[in-house]
Write a protein that binds this DNA or RNA. Structure first.
Lengths: 211, 211
DNA sequence: GTCTATAACGGGATAGAC
DNA sequence: GTCTATCCCGTTATAGAC
């Protein structure tokens, strides 16, 4: 199974670099100094490769999202948690640079993508609940549902947003900026502590970015 | 110039129905009972057609965004304003169903898309300013910038979000839901009035949806 | 301005030798 | 498992008739 993994590794790299649409199965074969026929022996085209890559992503995302967040309490914990999620997404960024496209083109992928979305939603819900229990935030029930939607949307479209805006930020910088953007959405529901939390977040962001 | 317009009309319809990627120049010609060669006489391929369609969109968007919003004061005015913007986007929805893709594929479009983005940003900024002047909302300067980002992001990715979520809502329903989602993001900054405004918005949304 | 016909290209996919 | 050779197909693009 070594060739199979080599194919997946190089495909992920190329897809992230050039975008999924820019590459044909033949391009991938060329990058591996491999004949198209040989590639087709392992994967019957681009689609199964993408499916296999999504499998990898799914697995790692499940570990992150279903694992740790019982331990997420402080703002700093939350920061790290969101950072890890975004980093994982960044490793498979070609899925996110044009979600709509992929979901439209590969219906099988759409289903699985929605499952990941649901996992994100549950994780956020659970983290918010912890914050509420500790009286670190309080929010109207209706607004809470909308907030979760917004946060899921942020986790899903931050890379597209960056593409559209055309700001040419490095990966780590983009991730830090997005963590901040994510966290700031929670601040207004932190009541009197909000102001202090905001300052801490901005300070933390400054540190991270200048590092 | 009549054939030219017929081409643009049918292209817009088809792109919205099937997606930009799903259609070739030949498909468009077929839909018009026209030979591919004839189509190429008017537009040298798909790209110039898309550029021309974006020109239409740009023009109408500029009228909406730069025009009315001096008159936007009450919550109801805002609701209508956002509704009109979303409706216009919906008319050219193929641009928005996978923004990342189009922007990546047609660099010329990217620039123009960013201009529209900037127009949206200015319009939102200006509306928020009005609300602030009337003491209908108050918001920390740093959070304000983030809020505007979030609102622009909502206006840009609501259609992609719908595609990804796979909820099969009708156009008008989707637009109403999105207006609500947009407006709810402002509520937390309305202070004591927030609760009442929230109820009014939800009530309005119920009316709109059941109509 | 509109049409038909056709050339040129590239990707997807497979057969069969090694 | 890997390779070469090849076929099929849809898209792009142009030449030239009407």
């Amino acid at each position: 199974m070594k060739t199979r993994d080599r194919i997946l590794d190089i495909s992920l790299t190329l897809f992230n670099q050039e975008g999924e649409a820019a590459l044909s199965a033949v391009d991938i074969a060329n990058a591996l100094d491999m004949s198209p026929g040989n590639l087709y022996y392992h994967f019957k085209g681009k689609e199964p490769i993408i499916e296999a890559l999504f499998g990898r992503f799914e697995d790692e995302m499940a570990i992150i999202l279903n694992g740790t967040h019982g331990a997420v309490e402080s703002i700093e914990d939350n920061w790290v948690f969101v950072y890890i999620v975004l980093e994982e997404i960044y490793d498979f960024r070609f899925f996110y640079r044009n979600v709509g496209e992929l979901v439209g083109q590969y219906p099988a992928l759409a289903k699985r993508f929605r499952k990941v979305l649901a996992m994100k939603r549950r994780a956020i819900d659970s983290v918010l609940s912890v914050l509420e229990q500790r009286n670190m935030m309080s929010i109207d029930k209706r607004l809470r549902a909308a907030l979760i939607d917004q946060l899921v949307s942020t986790l899903t479209f931050w890379l597209s947003f960056d593409v559209v805006e055309g700001t040419d930020r490095s990966g780590p910088r983009l991730i830090h900026d997005t963590v901040l953007r994510f966290m700031l959405q929670i601040v207004p529901y932190m009541g009197a502590d909000g102001q202090a939390v905001l300052e801490r977040m901005l300070e933390r962001h400054r540190q991270m970015v200048s590092a």
